[in-house]
Structures are given as C-alpha cells and as structure tokens.
Design a protein around this nucleic acid. Sequence first.
DNA 1: TGAAAAATTGGGGTCGTTGCAAAATTTCAG
DNA 2: CTGAAATTTTGCAACGACCCCAATTTTTCA
Lengths: 213, 213
Amino acid sequence: MAEGLRERKKRQTRQYISDVATGLFLERGFEAVTVAEIAEAANVSVNTVYNYFPAKEDLFFDRSAGVADRLARWVRGRDVGESAARAVLRELRSEVEAVSPRVGLMAGYDRFMRVIHEAPALRSRLWSLQQETHDILEATLREETGAAADDPLPDLMAGQICWVHQAVFVAIGREMVAGRKPAEVSREVLVLMDDIEDLLSEKVLNYAVRGAA
Amino acid sequence: MAEGLRERKKRQTRQYISDVATGLFLERGFEAVTVAEIAEAANVSVNTVYNYFPAKEDLFFDRSAGVADRLARWVRGRDVGESAARAVLRELRSEVEAVSPRVGLMAGYDRFMRVIHEAPALRSRLWSLQQETHDILEATLREETGAAADDPLPDLMAGQICWVHQAVFVAIGREMVAGRKPAEVSREVLVLMDDIEDLLSEKVLNYAVRGAA
DNA sequence: TGAAAAATTGGGGTCGTTGCAAAATTTCAG
DNA sequence: CTGAAATTTTGCAACGACCCCAATTTTTCA
C-alpha cells in the first residue's frame, strides 16, 4: 500500500515548490526573488509555500537535509584502531579524490556558492548548519568515548574536527567560485588537506580511537 | 576647538538611542522590542534611528566596535621570540585572570548572553564578527610573515587561533549564563585554556615567531 | 542675518512572516 | 455512490523591518 495518495501529493507539491524556487534563485539571486513570485511560478498561494517551508531560506537549503550529521556518521563508522579525526580525514579525502558532488565538486556548483555568498541570510544559515554539525559531533564523541558530562574535551575535539571540515569546504567553495574545474580543485584540495592534517596535534589525531572489535 | 557642536550632538544622539535600545533589549529581549518603540522611547523618529544604525542588530552591538581586530592587534604586539598563537594565549589568559569585563567576566553579562542566545539575528551577527576577526587576522598574519598570496597557511593558522578565541568565549558565555560568579568562571576557564593549548600542534604554536628586534 | 548644508521627520511602499476563517479537496464509512 | 469528517489550500488582514523621497527643521558660516 502506497500509504495514501495524499502523502504522495504533498511530497510532490513540496518538491515542486522547492525546485521552482531554487531555479529562480540560481537565475536571479536569493534576495531578488520574492516569495510571492515563487508561489505564482509554482501555481500555489504564498500561504501554501509557508505551509511547507518555515522560511524563505529553507527553500534554498531543502536539498541539504542530512548534511549536519555527516561528520558524526563518519566518526561512528570509523575503523578499528582509527581515531575520529583520522576517520573524517579519510572520508573527506575519499570524497575529494572522487570529485564528488557531495563536497561541491561538480560543474555548476559555483552558481550555488555565488548565490549563497551574495545573501547574508543564506550565509547565516550555513553557520547554523555548522553549529548543528558541531553539536551533533560533540554529542557523538561524548557517547563514543564515554566522556563525563563536564569533560571539556568532546567539545574541543568537535571544534577541531569541524575546523578541518570547514577549511576544506571553504577552499572548495572559493576555488569553484573562482571558475576552476572540479578536477583541478580536487587535486589542489588534496594537497591542502595534507597541510591541514599537519596542523593537527597528536592529541587530536588520536582522540576517540576505536578499540578492538 | 571642539570640531563642531554638530558632531558632538550627533554622537550624543547616537549614544542615547543605543543606550535606550540596549536597556529595552536587556529588559524584554531583542525580538520583543520594536524599532518603533525604541524610537519613541528615545524621542526620535524611526527614520532617525535608521540614520544612525543600518539595522536593528547594530543597536545591540554598538558597544562592540573594535572587537573584530583584537586578535590581530594582539598578534602585532607579540614579543620578540613569541609566536602569534602564544601571544594570543598570553593576552587571553591575562584578560581572564584579571576577570576583565572585556572577555565577559562581569556581573550582568549573563543578561547580554541570554538576549543574544534567544535571538537568531544576534547570533548571526556574532558569526559575522567571528568571520571578520578571521579575515583581519589572516591578513595580519600574511603581512607579518610575508607569506605569498597563494600560501594557504595564514588562512589555516588564523582558523586555529580564532578557534582558541572562540572556544574561550563560548565557555565563558555558557558558564555565565548558567549563573556562575565571574571569579569562579575565571579560574575554571584558565584550566580550560591549558586543555586548549594542549590541543594545538607545535606548528601552530610556533607560527609567525617575531624575530630579534 | 540670511542662504547653504545637514539632520530630522512623515508618508508611503515593499517584503517576509503570521493568524484566522472560509473554501476546496481528499478520505472513508455507510 | 454519497455525504460527513479530516485535511489542505487559499484570501485577507496585519505586523515589523527597512527603504525612498520630499518637506521641514536645525545648524553653520560667510
């Protein structure tokens, strides 16, 4: 059973509104497009837009669900004998090496970045996402290491690991906006990641090592 | 001569509006206070408020001018033989040890933090400030080390140093909001700073050492 | 003292966002 | 197949931040 035609239609409508909105944003910028225009272009009322999306920014970031816990997932999936930081570095390198769209290495990603760059509201959203990523990662580290509630280390370690993540993404964003080709950026970022790893202390690189299975 | 009564009056008006606004914000929260209310309470028109402050948030952060370049100033003022990171750690420890209001160690600072915490627009502003701090610090490190324009290190080092700064401030904010006494928080944060320094690699701790005078 | 410069104001308007109640649509029991 | 119930969509009105512009008041200085 398809669990209702209603549900399907709702998801459809939601997706359609988001698509139309994203299209307009990429074409004319975030601030230049009004919610009323989006509604009209999607053949719904403004209220319907707000029924699905709590704010205008959510129309843009709809695709990026499940990004906030990516770091935490990587940490949870680390190998035996591997630390949290090294797991993240490994996964990140793997994505970069594969020129994966998941890390922004794709033709046309520069358009996305440019739209974000020009809209303070969207940049603000990215910071929120970063914060969320940090909080989830901290909680995960706390669980995985069994650290006490007043242990400051999970917080600090999450900060360091998020910094790695952020540095990589900022670099990718900058190069892509500068008009470089994904493959080029991939190679360049891989050497940057060596620099980044060099700046991490042994304490960070050896935190939360997974014990023998 | 006093360079004009006009200038004086302008500064006075500006200060007064900001004071009235801050008072209202601390009393009732950022979002609950309307710009129209502020204008009325300050005996000016709404347009005058916007003449002095580009946005509502600027009314709250008016005091924090010159915060964005504090890290850069500390780095520029480092001793002979001292690195950028160590200079920041030293100055920061000095402020924390002195229970300085400049780092939020003062009675009533919890009110500030709480207002910020509850208003997304204000949190967003803090992130902007952090970003500005980073950019200024990066530029300073580039100058001070004479690094090439495509050298990634100043960017990364600025990231690490800003992380230190941010970790300290977040900790202070959290403890103050929790209702702790400034002196207590000071002691506690000093030991946290030892943990933080422990997480920095030698590369970071020895970057941009000032040569002999 | 009077004209130029600058500050303040009021009015009107746009846009994001919310609340509410009416209207259209979908579901499902009988 | 039908009608009532549940749910979605919509229109309308409103609030608040913010902007533009022209009128007006205040300050400056020749």
